[in-house]
Amino acid sequence: MRFVTLAILATTTLASAPSFAQSNTYITAGYDHLHTKKTDTGTLNGRVGYQFSPNIGLEGEGGIGIKEDKVNGVKVRTRGTLGAFGVASIPVGDSLSIFGRAGYVHRWTEAKGDASLLKKQGYKSKDDDGSFAIGVGGQYMLDDSNGVRLDYTRYTKDKGADGITASYVRKF
């Protein structure tokens, strides 16, 4: 009986996979500028998302640090990010939608410089921590498959940080 149940589940999953991939799945690729009270860093950012309806979806994101900042002799950079968000969208027209998103992001940062400078300025040489995040944005589709997206995200860790991301969107 267990084998039959697993076979049915596998068949159902494989049968629904083409519709999953063709209708509501999207990816984005872009630049995320992260601003804190002390630094400005940036990542090359990518997202994979799925819209369950025109209004509700989930997305995962990851980033690789590409821009560092130097503050009072200390180099600071984001090494990478990994996060997941729930997304609520409102179509404003055929091509334009606005959205809000809330989730959790894990960020790996690194500071390099003289040990006394790091301690004096309150930096850790490596920081590996997460943050709840909430944001808003807009997306404009150029055609059925290609578009652009701009969003703002507020990260709550410590005194907070602000992220602004500009991305290319591809729907499948």
Rank of each mutant, 00 (worst) to 15 (best):
M1H: 11
M1D: 13
R2P: 05
V4I: 13
A7R: 11
T11S: 13
T13R: 00
A15D: 07
A15E: 03
A17N: 02
S19H: 11
S23V: 10
S23P: 06
I27W: 11
I27G: 11
G30Y: 10
G30R: 04
G30N: 07
Y31Q: 01
H33D: 10
T36P: 06
K38F: 10
T39K: 00
D40V: 07
G42S: 00
L44S: 13
R47F: 08
Y50E: 05
F52P: 01
S53C: 04
S53K: 05
P54G: 11
N55W: 09
G57W: 02
E59W: 08
G60W: 00
G60E: 06
E61Y: 02
G62D: 09
G63D: 06
I64M: 07
G65K: 02
G65S: 00
K70I: 15
V71R: 01
G73Y: 03
V74Y: 03
V76S: 02
V76F: 01
R77H: 09
T78Y: 01
T81I: 09
G83T: 08
A84E: 09
F85A: 09
V87K: 00
S89W: 07
P91C: 11
P91E: 10
V92M: 14
V92E: 06
G93E: 09
S95F: 05
S95Q: 09
S97H: 05
I98F: 08
F99Q: 01
F99Y: 14
G100M: 02
R101N: 07
R101P: 03
A102H: 01
A102P: 01
G103S: 12
Y104F: 14
V105L: 10
V105Y: 00
V105R: 02
R107P: 01
E110I: 08
K112Y: 10
D114I: 08
A115Q: 10
S116D: 13
S116M: 12
S116W: 09
L117E: 11
Q121S: 07
Q121V: 01
Y123G: 06
S125L: 07
D127S: 12
D127K: 07
G130S: 12
S131P: 05
I134D: 07
G135N: 04
G137D: 02
G138R: 03
M141L: 15
M141V: 12
L142D: 06
L142A: 14
D143I: 05
S145K: 14
N146W: 12
L150E: 00
Y152T: 10
T156F: 09
T156P: 04
T156H: 04
D158A: 10
K159E: 15
K159T: 15
K159P: 04
G160L: 08
D162K: 00
I164S: 03
Y168S: 03
V169I: 11
F172W: 13
F172A: 07
